[in-house]
Design a protein around this nucleic acid. Structure first.
Lengths: 143, 143
DNA sequence: GAAATAATATGATAAAAATCATATTTAAGA
DNA sequence: TCTTAAATATGATTTTTATCATATTATTTC
């Protein structure tokens, strides 16, 4: 469903969200270890996220990654789209183009409600929402 | 979530289920095209399913694949496990070992209910259930 | 404005998944 | 029992995903 890359990206973004408060920036080398992802790999993903305006960065000494106010409003789905592309999550569980409500595939009837719920939540929840949860101790970022 | 291989396997099993009624067997070459999967590839998957006793086969002239009564009782999940392995679907959405109800990861709270529902349905529904749906015109096997 | 520090760009390598090809074995039917 | 038709076993190739490495560019600070 989600590629490793998307999972890494989500973890990294949330890590930045909770660790870059008040102008303090976070560097790649400080992200890679705690979220358990190889440094050069996460660096590449972060660059893509910057291009898509999902996170922000500055170069040079005291530089690093951070989130501005707009970044905080971005949905989790947008992170996934930036990394995995648009169509990954959209197709039906059997990847059938022809599957729809009128002509459902055999899995459609039993799975589509739950599936649509997952998509709905990924679209609704923002980086801000999830980092608030973490800050309130309602969820955790162990790695 | 599901690998291509699992999707192919599910499609193939259902195709066999609805096309091998009353002792008639289905051959690889007759499966590959309608379900839109390369023949040598689906052949390999079918062999694995036979070993796991999810489907049945006989060799030689008039041979092919079919389902016996026990095969029809197999859950969809078992097909997925046979092809993708046991752990693929079990891990949390961020693949965190440490994620659980007491210490949920940031996505856990928003997705776990829908996710558990999907797993529950995949465990409950049998090949028989889904092929009945198809036979009753409640779902379709276009490809 | 020079040195140091950080992201960025580019690309090489490795591992896994998907695809393709071929030789072997088994069973049926003449 | 010989021929044929089918699955089965094995493995080679290609593509995608994941990982690793290095050179370049921008920004701060002295």
């Amino acid at each position: 469903m989600l590629s490793n890359s998307s999972k890494y990206a989500i973890k990294a973004v949330l890590f930045i969200a909770v660790n870059s408060k008040r102008g303090k920036k976070v560097m790649v080398k400080d992200i890679a270890n705690p979220i358990n992802v190889p440094k050069p790999y996460i660096a590449k993903l972060l660059q893509k996220l910057v291009k898509e305006k999902i996170i922000s960065s500055t170069r040079g000494p005291r530089g690093g990654f951070y989130l501005n106010n707009e970044n905080f409003k971005v949905s989790i789905m947008k992170i996934i789209h930036a990394i995995d592309g648009e169509k990954t999550l959209k197709s039906c569980m059997l990847s059938l183009d022809t599957c729809n409500e009128e002509k459902p595939c055999p899995l459609h009837n039993i799975l589509s409600i739950s599936r649509d719920n997952i998509l709905k939540h990924l679209n609704q929840k923002t980086i801000e929402d999830l980092s608030n949860d973490i800050n309130l101790g309602q969820s955790f970022l162990p790695l």
